[in-house]
């Protein structure tokens, strides 16, 4: 007996696309993710190839050339496309080098807080009970501390350098990692595949690394991107207050701080680094939201 199967494809041959294929397909169809990723990529390239891309040395002062307006201004020139600051340093060069500092601080602080927060969150979620109680207490304690004030106090006490700013930020913003990882782990822990791994005799470390972490990775990546943005903003704030990166380093926050006395007559002095910070934070947030949409479409409204 033969069956005409021309109209209906053999069900065995139609396979759902694999998770990776689905992911790439969705990622390229997501506008926000593409825009955010694009801007972030440009910033990364700026940071990595700063010495090649930048037309001047970021520390070269030329008082004869101070406060030249950007090129779109009447008095601007292509010699300094974004003008110069009050010490005559080329602005576009400092913006390019500033991306290095922002991204370095953003990513390093995220890594430190990510490792700390994830470890605490996963431990709390997986073990529960007393461990959970202690870690939840730590989280609440941390949430009760105002980040900027603590950072100010520590930096004032220990002096400020790039490393100190990174460590202070890293040790202060792990709370969101811990909270999110805790609840994500609690959810995954009840899945049968975790019970099955336990019944197979897997060690706790193995269960956490190979069963839990891959399944909370989506949430982790989203929090990580948001925390990079958070750290970038905090760095800018600290630098603006004079307690972050110290002059003459080209930090965007510091550039705003240095330009604030010229704000009323030469607004671009702060508008340009302000825009840079805005774009970076926006790009990171778009990327984070995009990743969440793409990896967990069921959570989208």
């Amino acid at each position: 007996m033969t069956v005409n199967t021309s109209k209906l494809p053999d069900p065995a041959t139609i396979l759902e696309p694999s998770p990776t294929q689905l992911l790439t397909r969705r990622a390229f169809g997501h506008t926000g993710l593409m825009i955010g990723g694009g801007i972030l990529l440009i910033m990364l390239i700026m940071a990595l190839f700063a010495p090649i891309l930048a037309p001047f040395d970021p520390y070269d002062q030329d008082l004869a050339q101070r406060l030249i307006p950007p090129v779109w201004h009447d008095k601007g020139s292509w010699g300094h496309p974004l003008g110069t600051d009050n010490l005559g340093r080329d602005y576009i060069t400092r913006i390019i080098y500033g991306a290095r500092i922002s991204l370095l601080i953003g990513f390093s602080a995220m890594l430190i807080s990510g490792v700390l927060g994830t470890a605490l969150g996963v431990a709390a979620g997986y073990f529960g009970g007393r461990v959970d109680m202690v870690i939840t207490f730590l989280i609440t304690t941390r949430l009760a501390m105002p980040v900027i004030l603590v950072a100010l106090a520590v930096v004032a006490l220990l002096g400020s350098s790039l490393q100190i700013v990174i460590w202070v930020l890293g040790l202060l913003i792990w709370d969101r990692f811990a909270v999110v990882m805790r609840s994500a782990t609690q959810q995954i822990r009840t899945m049968d595949y975790v019970t099955s791994a336990r019944a197979l005799g897997c060690s706790t470390l193995r269960i956490i690394l190979s069963e839990i972490l891959p399944n909370v990775a989506n949430a982790l990546i989203v929090v990580a991107t948001l925390e990079v943005a958070h750290a970038v903003l905090l760095e800018a704030a600290l630098s603006f207050l004079g307690l972050g990166v110290q002059p003459p380093e080209p930090s965007w926050g510091l550039m705003i701080s240095e330009g604030k006395s010229h704000m009323f007559f030469k607004p671009w002095v702060i508008a340009i680094p302000g825009t840079a910070i805005f774009l970076l934070v926006l790009a990171i947030n778009l990327l984070g939201d995009g990743i969440r949409d793409v990896t967990a479409p069921e959570n989208r409204n």
Partner: peptide, 24 residues
């Protein structure tokens, strides 16, 4: 040892959607 127990006794669960790690 937990590995000894695992060699002798194994489970099969109810929900095949929750008993397999979706990332593997």
């Amino acid at each position: 040892d937990r590995l000894d127990i695992a060699r002798m006794v194994q489970p099969i669960f109810q929900d095949p959607y929750s008993s397999l790690n979706p990332r593997k």
